[in-house]
Design a protein around this nucleic acid. Structure first.
Lengths: 176, 176
DNA sequence: GTCTATAAGAAGATAGAC
DNA sequence: GTCTATCTTCTTATAGAC
């Protein structure tokens, strides 16, 4: 699973072959099928571990904070760190969109939704202007976050800066 | 090219086969190679038309506006309409990331950059707080915009609403 | 639990007839 | 400019030996 996560994260699901995965762990392709019935089952397992792990990370990071804006900022930074630094599992969540594996599209989408509900929860506690749509705000923020992997390279910005700035660029406009 | 754009936009580059493309236009796979030397050349041609077309669309849409914030809002909405409504070419730009075709990665990235420079230009004219990073702001906005295709479905929001709200969620926080 | 061997199909691409 | 036919390679997956 670690090998698959690493490859899915860096090359993508379709671009990763069973040969890639097996050779990464010094096995032959056929041997992998003793552990997983198919390539899709590997993706499902990796995705589940990605979602579960990131959920716990984000929840832990905000657990000691009560200020709603600070909770948003910290959750944002924790999410960014996970998908930018070398957490292969978290990167799979952003690299592999559910529609890349049509047969398990529903399962993958359900997992993503369950993760994003953390952000729904945090945003629901923000003192926002009445006409700010909380759903749209979440989609905007998570969309911006997940797209960082496309352009990010160490040196320019740190995940902490990006998260802090993104929340800052929003806060005064939307707060009550 | 229209057939390829349609397929690349909906299924992705790797997921689209030469057989898909040829059958879409009632041809046999071999025949397509008379027009394009390889699948990558098709992607390059589609990408170029996508970038050129969207550039013109966005530039036209803002050409009669002088207010910098309105220009940003209109460019945002034009971009959203293109990648959400059925403009296959524009959708290829957001669906197919350059790293999906490593051999032509540089060319694709250069084209994307040339398109995004429109937004750099618009943002550079905004009266912003001195400590707002214009590059980061552009990346945040474009990231949020391009991710809409993942969740968008007609009925919920219109492209106009999304664009207007996204700019509104930013404006008061970042303006001078 | 891993290997050998291989099936069965799909992929990008080409040669030459029409 | 398109078709027929095919090459070559790669892909997921399986059967059975060890």
């Amino acid at each position: 699973m670690d090998a698959a996560a690493k490859l899915f994260a860096s090359k993508g699901y379709k671009e990763t072959t069973m040969r890639d995965i097996s050779s990464e762990i010094g096995m032959l392709p056929g041997s992998v099928y003793y552990h997983f019935k198919s390539k899709q089952k590997i993706l499902l397992a990796v995705y589940k571990q990605a979602v579960d792990g990131l959920k716990i990370k984000v929840e832990n990071s905000i657990s000691t904070q009560s200020d709603p804006w600070l909770r948003l900022e910290i959750a944002t930074i924790t999410h960014l760190k996970a998908i930018i630094d070398q957490n292969d599992y978290a990167q799979v969540m952003t690299e592999v969109l559910p529609d890349k594996a049509p047969d398990i599209h529903r399962e993958l989408t359900a997992m993503r939704d369950s993760y994003e509900s953390i952000f729904s929860e945090i945003i629901s506690k923000l003192p926002l202007k009445a006409d700010v749509d909380k759903g749209l705000l979440r989609l905007m923020l998570i969309g911006a976050l997940n797209s960082t992997k496309v352009w990010f390279q160490t040196g320019n910005f740190q995940p902490e800066e990006i998260g802090r700035e993104y929340v800052r660029y929003l806060k005064d406009s939307i707060k009550e």
